[in-house]
């Protein structure tokens, strides 16, 4: 059997795999809100820092 069959099967399986991943992502609502996650991503550091020191603005200003 020619290697082309194996290659085709691999490529189609991978493609279908990604396609299913896409469908699952849409179904879970990932595309419903495309803005908030982009902001939320930036907060993770803030939470860790906050424990050790008081926020910059509230202590230095005034």
């Amino acid at each position: 059997m020619s290697v082309i069959y194996i290659l085709l099967i691999i490529s189609i399986v991978i493609a279908v795999g990604f396609f299913i991943a896409f469908i699952i992502a849409v179904k879970s609502g990932q595309y419903d809100d495309s803005y908030t996650p982009s902001v939320r991503m930036l907060f993770e550091d803030e939470l860790v820092k906050k424990k050790s020191r008081k926020s910059k603005l509230t202590t230095n200003k005034l």
Binding site: E46, K51, K56, T58
Partner: peptide, 12 residues
């Protein structure tokens, strides 16, 4: 907010 250590609110 300040009692709960949430003053970061005013930094953002």
């Amino acid at each position: 907010f300040s009692e709960n250590d949430l003053t970061c609110y005013y930094d953002l």
